[in-house]
Every structure is written in C-alpha cells, then in structure tokens.
Amino acid sequence: MRHLRNALVAVTATIAALLAGLLTAPSAHAAPNFKAPFPCGQSWTYSHHSQEVRLALDFIKNGGGTAGQPNLASAAGTAYRYYEANGAGNYVVIDHGGGWKTYYFHLSSFAISHGQSVSQGQTIGYTGSTGNSSGAHIHYEQLYNGAGQTIHINGQSLAPYPGSYGQRSITSDNGCGGDGKYWVDTFADAPVFASPTSTSQTGTLYKATNYVYCKAWGREIRDGAGNYNHWWLKTDPDVGPANQYVSAYYLSRWGNDEARDNNGTVIPDC
C-alpha cells in the first residue's frame, strides 16, 4: 500500500505541474527599439486628440514643410499598404513580429509594395492628408497583439500626451545611416559597373528601394531631356558581384549632379 500511495502522490504532483504549465500566461515579447517615424535630424511636435483610438499620436514638422516628408519605418518588419476612403486614407501597417505592429495613416503616396520587407529607417511613404484628415500630418500608432500601446521612441515613453501641438517635440535619429547604408529609390532597372569610370557592365540593380554606401565622381550619364549625373553610388546589385557602382542618374528624386538618399541626406564620399 505504501508503494501505491507514493505512486499516486507522484502522479498527482506531475499532473499539477503540467496544469500549472498550461495555465501560465505566455510571456510578453519585448518591443522593438522603435525610432521616430520621420527623417534623421528633424524636429517634430506631436499631440493626441480624444477621438483618436489606440493611443495614437499625430506629428507635424516644426517650422512647417510637413507635407511630402518621408514616413520612415520605426523598426524592421514586413510592410503592408492599404486604403480607407473615410478614415486612414493611404496607410501602411508594419508587422514587426512577436505581436508588435506600427501604423502610419494619411500618406500622400506609398514608397513600398504590399508585403515588402523593410529595414528600420527605410522610407515607406510620404506625409499627406488623405482620408479623414484636415491637414498634412503623420498619424502614428504602436500596437501589441492588436491593442494600442503608449508610444515609446528609443525606449522612452512620450506620455503624458499633450493635447495640442507646440507643447512637446522630439528630434529623430532614425535613418541616420549608422549602419553604413543609405536608402534610395531608383526609377528603372539600372546597369552597374566595377568603377565610376568603367564602361563594361557587371550586373543590374532592379527598380526598387535600394541601399547604397557612398558616392564617387565619374563619367557622365545623360539623357536627351537634359538630365545628367556624374555621381556614382557604391551598392550591392541584384545581379552581379557586390560593391559595384550605379549612376545617381537613376535616383527617383533630386536633380542633376545630386546624390542624396530618400531623406535628403547627402551620401558621403567613398
């Protein structure tokens, strides 16, 4: 009987341990180190309106010029683009994994494709006033498992939220090129070369949002409409070996003999 009683005690303890494991709530996934959703070095003021859901904040640029400014991914993830006529307008949702998402509303246009992987600091769209909006601004949210969270930037809470603009501001360190990469949009598939003066094509950089490392002066690329560029950007092409050069002529923004990233930062010399 003693052996039977000991066996029953052991079985009961095992069952209790299993039940305890089943009933224990799953641990929360740590939030990514979210950064501000606007370009490096810019100062934006923010506010919260009572009618906004999910602890959202609205941002406008100090000194004006909010419209058309890039919206940057707060953290790496998979970006999805949507449209809601009477609400968010053009908007992007980035799934960062572990239950975390960020939302970016009222974009004037998109800079990514649906389901595209993005890096922290990558341009995902441009600030606008589409949908139910009275003026250009970034409507920004951080969600965990579908529930709005108090917004944190670089691990610091922005609460308590101000009720109007001009009371509190933050300066962005997002997209500052700390990883040595500068993100640029190209308007067409572009040939790449081993050097800024080479004429033998070594590969191709596809039309997309691409990263480059630095710039160097080289031979001129010119079209019949008077557009030209002497700058060449070191990059890793989609086809061909790494560390090749593509002409800054293929950048979707900027003008003749300019070489800037999507945030307007001048790409450094190689």
Score class of each variant (00 low, 15 high):
residue 7 A to N: 13
residue 8 L to C: 13
residue 8 L to M: 14
residue 11 V to M: 12
residue 11 V to H: 10
residue 12 T to M: 11
residue 13 A to C: 05
residue 17 A to C: 15
residue 19 L to W: 15
residue 24 T to P: 12
residue 24 T to R: 13
residue 25 A to K: 11
residue 25 A to H: 13
residue 30 A to F: 06
residue 33 N to H: 10
residue 35 K to F: 00
residue 36 A to T: 00
residue 37 P to T: 06
residue 37 P to W: 07
residue 37 P to V: 04
residue 39 P to I: 03
residue 39 P to S: 13
residue 39 P to G: 10
residue 44 W to Y: 13
residue 45 T to L: 11
residue 46 Y to P: 07
residue 46 Y to H: 03
residue 48 H to Y: 15
residue 50 S to L: 12
residue 50 S to G: 06
residue 53 V to I: 12
residue 53 V to T: 15
residue 54 R to V: 04
residue 56 A to D: 07
residue 60 I to C: 00
residue 66 T to Y: 08
residue 68 G to T: 08
residue 69 Q to D: 10
residue 70 P to D: 04
residue 76 A to H: 07
residue 83 Y to L: 11
residue 85 A to N: 15
residue 87 G to E: 14
residue 88 A to N: 14
residue 88 A to Y: 09
residue 95 D to R: 10
residue 97 G to N: 07
residue 102 T to I: 06
residue 103 Y to E: 07
residue 108 S to W: 04
residue 109 S to C: 07
residue 110 F to E: 07
residue 110 F to T: 00
residue 111 A to P: 03
residue 111 A to V: 04
residue 113 S to K: 14
residue 114 H to Q: 11
residue 116 Q to G: 06
residue 120 Q to S: 13
residue 120 Q to N: 07
residue 120 Q to F: 05
residue 122 Q to L: 02
residue 122 Q to N: 08
residue 123 T to Q: 06
residue 130 T to A: 03
residue 131 G to A: 04
residue 133 S to I: 03
residue 135 G to A: 09
residue 137 H to E: 05
residue 139 H to W: 04
residue 145 N to D: 14
residue 147 A to P: 09
residue 147 A to Y: 11
residue 148 G to M: 05
residue 149 Q to E: 13
residue 151 I to W: 05
residue 151 I to D: 01
residue 157 S to V: 02
residue 159 A to P: 09
residue 159 A to R: 09
residue 161 Y to V: 01
residue 161 Y to W: 10
residue 162 P to Y: 14
residue 162 P to E: 07
residue 164 S to C: 00
residue 167 Q to N: 07
residue 170 I to T: 05
residue 171 T to K: 13
residue 172 S to K: 01
residue 174 N to A: 05
residue 175 G to A: 07
residue 179 D to K: 14
residue 182 Y to H: 08
residue 184 V to C: 04
residue 185 D to N: 09
residue 185 D to L: 08
residue 186 T to D: 05
residue 188 A to H: 10
residue 189 D to M: 12
residue 194 A to K: 15
residue 195 S to T: 08
residue 195 S to A: 07
residue 196 P to C: 05
residue 198 S to E: 10
residue 199 T to G: 09
residue 201 Q to V: 02
residue 208 A to D: 15
residue 208 A to K: 15
residue 213 Y to R: 10
residue 214 C to G: 09
residue 215 K to T: 01
residue 217 W to L: 06
residue 217 W to G: 00
residue 218 G to Y: 13
residue 226 G to P: 14
residue 228 Y to M: 01
residue 228 Y to V: 01
residue 229 N to S: 02
residue 231 W to T: 08
residue 238 D to W: 03
residue 240 G to D: 07
residue 241 P to H: 03
residue 241 P to L: 00
residue 242 A to W: 05
residue 243 N to W: 09
residue 243 N to C: 03
residue 244 Q to N: 11
residue 245 Y to G: 00
residue 246 V to K: 00
residue 246 V to P: 02
residue 248 A to D: 06
residue 249 Y to P: 01
residue 249 Y to K: 06
residue 250 Y to T: 02
residue 250 Y to M: 05
residue 253 R to L: 12
residue 254 W to I: 04
residue 257 D to T: 12
residue 257 D to P: 05
residue 258 E to V: 01
residue 263 N to T: 12
residue 264 G to Q: 08
residue 266 V to T: 14
residue 270 C to I: 01
